[in-house]
Design a binder for these strands. Structure first.
Lengths: 212, 212
DNA sequence: CGCGCAAGGTGAACGGCTGTAAGTTTTTCT
DNA sequence: AGAAAAACTTACAGCCGTTCACCTTGCGCG
C-alpha cells in the first residue's frame, strides 16, 4: 500500500530571515510528486501536504498554483543544462565524444526523470496566460541555452572534420528534435518496436557524422 | 466572451434501436473539447454538457470516464491512418513522392488537431490501469499500422533506388520518431528557432534520400 | 387493440477534491 | 516587551466521478 500523499507533519518553524527555506522545500515536494505520479497530481494542496505544511502557507512564497509549476520547470531546465555540461566536460576534448556525451546525457535525463521531462516538454501545465501570474516570456526561452550548446558542439565536430554539416545550427535543431522524439516516445509507450541501436542511429544520421 | 461549456440542450430522444447514436455524439463532443481546450478539460460532466445530455446518461454508453478518452484516442489514430493513406494515394506512384506525402500528412494532422495529437502521443490520459476498465492491451498497439505503412513506403524508396537505407524498418522508426519530435515540439513551443526547411531537412536526412 | 417491459434518459445527491480568502496564533529577533 | 515574520485554522464556492431511484417513450406480443 503506497502512501499516496504521505504527510510529513514534523516540521520546525523557520527562523526570522530564512523563511525562504520553505520555498525550496515546496519546490522539492512538487518535484517529488511530479516524478512519482505525474503532472496532474501536483496540486497546491498535495504539495502542501507533502511539504508538511498547511495549504495557505504556500501563498507566502508563490502567488498561485501555476507559478509553482513554472518554478519547478525552470529549475528542471537548469538541472538538465547542468547535467549536459557536466557530461560533456567529463567526455574530454574529442568533439565526437562530446557530442555523444551530450546526446546520451539528454536521453538519460529523460529516462531518469520521466515525469519532469514530460512536464518540461509537454506544455500541458501552462495556464491560460492571463488568468495567472505566469507570462509567455517566462516559458518562451526554456531550454535555449542547451540547444545553443548542442549547436556549438556540432559545429566543433564539423571543424574537427568528423561531421559533414553545411548548416550546423539547423542540423542541431534537427538533432534536438530527434532526441526529443525518441525520449518522449520512450516515456509514453511501453511496447514499441525499438531497434536496439535506435539512439545511435538517430544521432549519427542527424549529426551527419562520418563513418570512421 | 467565448461560451466555455456551451450547452446544447435541444436534443430529441433516440428511437429504440438507435440509442447508439448518442455514443457518437458523446465522442464528437469529447473530441471538440479536446481540440478546443486540451485534455484536462475533457471531463465526464463537460462532455455531457457539450453533448446536451445529463451526466449520468453517459454511463449507458461508456463504463468509465477513461474509456471515453480511450475511444476518442482510438478513433483519432484511425483517422490519422486514414488521412495518411489518402494522402499517399493522391500522391501517385512515385516512391519518393509517396514518402513525402506521408510525412507532410502526418505533420499536417498534428498542426490541425493539436489537442488530439498531444493526447494521442502524450499519454497523460492513461488511467492507473487497474482502477478502470481500460487495459494495457488497448493502448499498446496504437499507431502500429501507420508505422508499418511508413516502413513499407521507405522500403519502396530503397527498391526504387531513391533511398540508401540498409535497414528500412529501423530507419522508418527513426523517421517516425523525428516526425513526432518535430510535430510535438511545434505544438508546444510558440517561439522556437525553426529553420524554414526543418521538416524537409529532417525527412531527407532520416530517410537517407538521394540528393537527386 | 392494449399492455407490459425494456431502452433511453433525468434529477438529486454523496463524498471528495480543488484554489483561494480572512482572520488568528505562534515564534523569533531586536 | 513589542513588532513582525511565519505559519495555522477555518471556511467558501466550485468542480469532479459515480450511484440510485425515477420518469417517458415506443416496440413486440398476446
Amino acid at each position: 500500500m503506497p502512501t499516496p500523499a504521505s504527510p510529513r507533519p514534523a516540521r520546525t518553524r523557520n527562523p526570522r530571515g530564512e523563511g525562504g527555506r520553505l520555498r525550496d522545500d515546496i519546490m522539492a515536494a512538487a518535484t517529488e510528486l511530479l516524478d512519482e505520479s505525474g503532472e496532474s497530481s501536483v496540486t497546491l494542496r498535495s504539495v502542501a501536504r507533502r511539504a508538511g505544511v498547511a495549504a495557505p502557507s504556500i501563498y507566502r512564497h508563490f502567488p498561485d498554483q501555476p507559478s509553482i509549476m513554472l518554478a519547478v520547470v525552470q529549475q528542471a531546465f537548469a538541472m538538465l543544462d547542468a547535467e549536459l555540461r557536466t557530461a560533456m566536460d567529463a567526455a574530454g576534448s574529442d568533439a565526437r565524444g562530446r557530442l555523444f556525451a551530450f546526446c546520451n546525457a539528454y536521453l538519460d535525463f529523460a529516462d531518469q526523470h520521466p515525469g519532469r521531462y514530460r512536464t518540461m516538454f509537454g506544455g500541458a501545465w501552462m495556464p491560460d496566460l492571463g488568468s495567472s501570474s505566469v507570462t509567455e516570456g517566462d516559458v518562451s526561452s526554456l531550454g535555449a541555452e542547451s540547444l545553443t550548446l548542442l549547436a556549438d558542439t556540432l559545429d566543433d565536430c564539423v571543424r574537427a572534420g568528423c561531421a559533414t554539416s553545411s548548416d550546423p545550427v539547423a542540423d542541431a535543431v534537427a538533432l534536438w528534435l530527434g532526441l526529443h522524439g525518441l525520449a518522449h516516445q520512450r516515456l509514453v509507450t511501453v511496447a514499441f518496436p525499438w531497434p536496439a541501436d535506435i539512439a545511435e542511429r538517430l544521432i549519427t544520421t542527424l549529426a551527419h557524422l562520418n563513418d570512421a
